[in-house]
Amino acid sequence: MSKYILFNILQVLVVMFFSPLIMGILNRLKEIVQSKHGPSIFQPYYDLYKLFHKDQVISQDSSWIFRITPFIVFIAPMFVALLIPVLTDYPLFWAFMDDMVGAGFVLALGGFFAVLSAVDTANPYGPMGASRTRMVGFLAEPVFLIVFFTVSFVANSTIPYIVQQRWVTPVSNFFEPSHLLLLISFVMLILAEKGRIPVDNPSGHFELAMIEESKDLEYSGYGAALMKWGGWMKFFVLIIIFSNVLLAPWGLATDLSWGSILLAIPLILIKVLFFILFLVLVESSLAKLRLFRISEFLSAAFVIAVVAMLASIFYQHGANL
């Protein structure tokens, strides 16, 4: 039992400590594609380290909401990391605390406070970013639900630990049309949710064009560090859900031993790395969309998800007949 708890905490720690690395790799790779040398892959750690050593300047107009928001933004993905199969393919201690639908709400809680804090500063750019984040948010929501519907139709469950088994037992399931389409739409969702190109340019410096970044424009010191870190963890968690729950649970620890669990960490990272590579190609190939074209992007994701779901329904219907 203690192992269940420890492993579960380990999952959180993995998410916590490897998420900056993933971001560092991603940024480095993107710059390499642009013929640049690029920052160190440990750059995110440097940034966090520095931010923790800085003082804070806070807007006089802001209230306590501004101050607690970084913690909530930081906790939400850790919380989700307790629920999803990061390292193991069997449920751990906190596994049944929530399912995928609930996890979505937990992540939304972080976003909720981020939006509030953006307005709280009375900064003219914060609310703008907040408003746009919400736009992306509510447009992504139906796509998420369609994904859940598909998952639920196929796996008859929304518990990530149970869902992950469904796609590979038997392995032929992996090649179901619904599965592949689902993956595509989920990638699109990740891009939208985390403000990656083509939805948002995470490295843009123009306030008026920002979506994701302008929300935490006002944060400084450890507040900024927590916000950034929380964002990276959310990204990592989403990738984990993608790769471990929806794609395939390969490389996860199957037994309750320290050895396999420690082995799982590099395997997971390699899996994520592949995803990162893919992402780099996508992000380097596309241009940022105009603001109101985002809805078109997400509706494309929606259509793909619906097709995936219909495929699953018909598949199942056919199987039942």
Partner: peptide, 23 residues
């Protein structure tokens, strides 16, 4: 309903933040 849920968050973050937060 999912779209509704998304819009609800938008709606109430807006309502709360615009009345209680900022300047």
């Amino acid at each position: 309903l999912a779209l509704t849920a998304g819009l609800t968050v938008t709606c109430f973050t807006r309502a709360f933040s615009m009345s209680f937060l900022g300047m």
